[in-house]
Amino acid sequence: MRVLVAGIGNVFLGDDGFGVEVARRLRVRGGLAQGVELVDVGIRGMHLAYQLLDGYDGLLLIDTMHGDGPPGTVYRVEHDPDAPARGSGLNGHGMDPGSVLALLDELATVNGVHRPVGRVLVVGCEPASLDECMGLSEQVAAAVEPALRAVDELLTLLLDRPTEQTDDGPERSAARRVT
């Protein structure tokens, strides 16, 4: 069983550093299960896509994301691997998780690899500000601890049932909330 946990974000854009901070705290805390690899991807989304070609049973991405909640809201989302991929844009220093996964699909096809990643889950946080500055806003900084708990819970889910999909009803989209 191989699971990759990837913190994504740009620490020079305020709350966009959320995924990087959560990954840092996970590394300091330690104690990840055997088979779980932790990386701070930062803004190197293209490198993440290439790393995923090595094959993982599960992927847990940590990043900011826009949902319907106030700043600091922590989301748990599952990526639907059968949803149509949107274009990758091939921006090596600014790829969001959706673009990374689209690029992964393209790279896998070119290399003759069928679905190099099993289940893909995302822990996201609603940002307050993505302006040029260092440091998280008060709301997003307060969301780091709940995000760490969400990571722990979703890792347990990935390790117990790596390929099981959640069923949130008949609607299928590129992302579904994980319960």
Rank of each mutant, 00 (worst) to 15 (best):
P81C: 10
V110L: 13
D15T: 13
D15P: 07
E21H: 15
A147C: 04
G31W: 09
G69H: 02
G72Y: 10
Q139C: 08
A143T: 03
V100N: 01
G35M: 07
Q34P: 14
R86H: 06
S99R: 15
M134R: 14
G89R: 15
G45A: 03
E145M: 03
H66S: 10
E106R: 14
R76F: 02
F18M: 08
E106Y: 13
Q139N: 09
D80E: 03
P127F: 09
C133V: 08
D57L: 00
G19R: 01
L48R: 03
P71Q: 09
D105Q: 13
N91Y: 01
L121D: 00
D68V: 13
L32C: 05
G58D: 08
G112K: 02
H79M: 05
E145V: 15
E132S: 11
V39N: 08
S137R: 04
A150C: 09
L52R: 06
R86W: 10
V41P: 07
L26H: 00
G124T: 03
R115G: 02
G30E: 08
D82T: 12
S88Y: 04
G98R: 12
P70V: 15
S88R: 08
L104E: 01
E138H: 13
Q34R: 14
R29Q: 15
A49W: 03
H79A: 04
T64A: 10
P97M: 09
